[in-house]
């Protein structure tokens, strides 16, 4: 028996919009810790890790650890039928091959049930080691989205370099080249407008912009994004989900042959 009641149902809608273009089918895992997912894109270049902690739900019942295979496009279709202010409850019964999403309007005058078929998915679960990153950049998520979009009109890849000068996003393409440098800026009115750069060592890595642009679909989840870089590791692009957890995207760098 599974029953997860999320008062801020819009969070789940935003999570699906953030990941559904990257991953087609995925297993959602439910345990005492929370509702989580780990999945790679079909070419194994990017990985998404989602956690919605149990404490973030108004009611959280999960009698035993369970893994439920879902087609994210179908799940998104169903969640789009929930209003932005609706309370969403996810319900499942042991051994059932379906899951039910219940949408309640804030005034309780409309209650809808959507039943979705589950699927069997063979997925590999990867161990993500704790790592010391060479540089961690925290910046407004809308600014990061803007930079990725702007650069992708010039080139296909972005070089992200962190030095003591700041963080530089560079690209090059048939029509020319572009460089965008952000310096640390903490003298802003609101904390969510700050750019904070922690650097242990200078680092420079190249990534496919197509994936970065896909990650920025998580922008509505958080005003800030954290980009963690190390020369030996995939970059981590993290959007915190207020009070509940996070969606983290890992992207393997492009490597000189």
């Amino acid at each position: 028996m599974l029953e997860l009641r999320l008062v801020q149902g819009s969070l789940l809608k935003k999570v699906l919009e953030a990941i559904k273009d990257l991953v087609t089918d995925a297993n959602f895992d439910c345990s005492a810790t929370g509702f989580s997912l780990q999945a790679m894109d079909s070419s194994h270049v990017a990985l998404v890790a989602l956690l919605l902690r149990s404490e973030g739900f108004e009611h959280y019942r999960c009698d035993r650890n369970i893994s439920m295979g879902m087609n994210l496009n179908n799940m998104s279709k169903m969640l789009k039928c929930a209003g932005n202010d609706d309370i969403i409850t996810i319900k499942g019964d042991d051994g059932s091959d379906t899951i039910t999403f219940m949408f309640e309007s804030p005034t309780q005058d409309k209650i809808a049930d959507f039943e979705m078929k589950l699927m069997d998915i063979d997925s590999e679960h990867l161990g993500i080691p704790e790592a010391e990153y060479h540089a961690i950049v925290r910046m407004p998520s809308a600014e990061f989205s803007r930079i990725c979009k702007d650069l992708s009109s010039i080139g296909d890849t972005v070089v992200i370099s962190v030095t003591k000068e700041g963080v530089k996003f560079s690209t090059r393409g048939d029509i020319g080249a572009a460089n965008i440098v952000l310096r640390q800026n903490t003298t802003v009115d609101k904390p969510e407008e700050a750019t904070i750069i922690e650097m242990n060592e200078p680092v420079s890595l190249t990534f496919a912009l197509r994936y970065m642009n896909s990650f920025t679909k998580a922008t509505p989840l958080s005003s800030m994004v954290t980009i963690s870089l190390s020369s030996e590791l995939p970059v981590v692009v993290e959007y915190k989900i207020a009070e509940m957890g996070y969606v983290r995207f890992y992207l393997a760098p492009k490597i000189e042959e």
Binding site: M40, H44, V45, A46, L47, E124, H125, L126, G127, I128, P129, T157, T206, A208, L233, P234, Y250, A252, P253, K254, I255, E256, E257
Partner: peptide, 14 residues
């Protein structure tokens, strides 16, 4: 051009 890396070469299956 640099070659695209693969997640599976960084993170191992558990």
């Amino acid at each position: 051009d640099p070659k695209q890396g693969n997640i599976l070469s960084f993170f191992k299956q558990v």
